[in-house]
Design a binder for these strands. Structure first.
Lengths: 254, 254
DNA sequence: GACTTTTAAATGTCTGACAAATGATTTTTG
DNA sequence: CAAAAATCATTTGTCAGACATTTAAAAGTC
């Protein structure tokens, strides 16, 4: 592992990249211990703080974990779904909020991905996942539920639907799309009538999943997408009308 | 921003989390300058190296960028799709290789997501994206192409298909799934006959996309998925037979 | 006014030190 | 001898202070 003294990048960034490459290439395998910080600083000919900055960069990506003590050190971390989820959610959330992705774009992506899961979920979901969907539908029907709680329940419902596909890669991919949208969804106020409509569609989808009818589930999701977009459009239209000047409140594309 | 002295986490991790929260919550907006490292170390009552480790963690996630010089400092970074892509690809690749996700699982997720894009792509793709698909098909037909080059072209083809949907969120989500699979795909050797079959399916899909026929594109993708899985199954079966002892070479689930 | 020099502020890096955790080793004790 | 206690060595976590480098703005000069 050598560093390029002509590179514009920081030493710590170069070191992090070198180690990252070694991990991705499989030269460093899971649970393998990296040399101690002192040894690394000798190898790379830099000071210990610089090595530490590099290691912190890798730790931020969950590529390594560190342990203090006699037999401690930095170890190559086995990336688990949970860590990957949370990273994905952070990234997706920021991507959506910072780049002001339009609600429509995010919504379209979300439902497209969910429709991809629906047929799999219809044929594979277990009783537990179905029960979760039913329970969330029930919760959504409770009077006095705040909009935020309604949204959270909505996410849980869709999460169960996706998990029903029994494919962790799909669950992982979708977690980002669904959860990242929550801040946008939370901007919506749901009237009692809105909730009733959504509830009915959820029931329709759950029925289809229970019956193992993937096509019907996809149709239900399409109907739900249409409903959600109409709802959001109305909310954003009202908001921009309320704002006296023609400054639209809706985050717009690019 | 306060730190919890009872927390088990490192100070630098806590500081990074505090700043990360501020960014996600919108308290720190894009391009806003963070206090200087000295000021931060005063605010958090820690030393400058500790602050720096925290900042490096955030830099590793592309949440901030730093600039040297008189008007330099750490600035909240506008997360762009490119950065998000590469992070997603690193994470997905490691997730797949370390957790030894089975080829089938990864394959299923990939094609499910692609099918989700196909109808959108059929109705929206521009001439450029269609041309890319055609060009890659042509490349795949060239004799003497290495397996790796064939795989790379395959990725480019599917990438164009997905980009055709014109939804950056979908492109972003799929980049991970498609590119992360490449190491697994590279384990396959494609016979001339295999290539011919794949080529024909690619043409069928491109035709459907050109004709605006989403349903046909979805069917083509399903056929391609079946073909890919059969091919992989054959390769892995041969490999485990070749290994004298009954040690299967295929990465297995969990 | 345009160009050069100086200056100040900020990050990047280094040195050296101590604190704290933790497993291994040694010593003490019953 | 065995178990418990004390010690030790190693490693990460943190700190303080210093210097180098970069960069833009300010001051000076022609």
């Amino acid at each position: 592992m050598k560093l390029d003294p002509n590179s514009a990048a920081d030493l710590s960034a170069q070191i992090a990249q070198a180690i990252r490459d070694a991990i991705v290439a499989g030269d460093l395998i899971v649970d393998e211990r990296l040399p101690s910080e002192t040894e690394l600083s000798d190898q790379f000919q830099v000071s210990r703080p610089t090595v530490r900055e590099a290691l912190k960069r890798l730790a931020a990506q969950s590529l390594i974990r560190t342990q203090r003590g006699a037999t401690g050190g930095a170890f190559v971390n086995r990336l688990n779904y949970e860590d990957a989820y949370s990273q994905q959610i952070t990234t997706s959330t920021l991507l959506l909020s910072m780049n002001a992705v339009s609600f429509d774009t995010a919504c379209e992506a979300r439902y497209a991905l969910e429709r991809a899961c629906a047929p799999l979920s219809a044929s594979r979901r277990n009783a537990d996942q179905l029960a979760t969907m039913r329970a969330e539908i029930f919760r959504q029907g409770q009077p006095g539920l705040t909009d935020e709680a309604f949204c959270a329940s909505d996410v849980a419902f869709h999460r169960a639907l996706v998990d029903g596909a029994g494919n962790p890669v799909l669950s992982y991919q979708l977690a980002g799309a669904v959860e990242a949208m929550q801040p946008l969804m939370n901007m919506i106020t749901f009237t009692a009538r809105d909730r009733q409509i959504i509830l009915a569609l959820h029931s329709r989808i759950a029925d289809a999943i229970e019956a193992g009818d993937g096509t019907a589930a996809v149709e239900g999701l399409s109907a739900l997408e249409e409903e959600t977009r109409a709802l959001a459009a109305a909310v954003f239209a009202a908001r921009s009308k309320r704002a006296s000047e023609p400054a639209p409140a809706e985050p717009s594309a690019h």
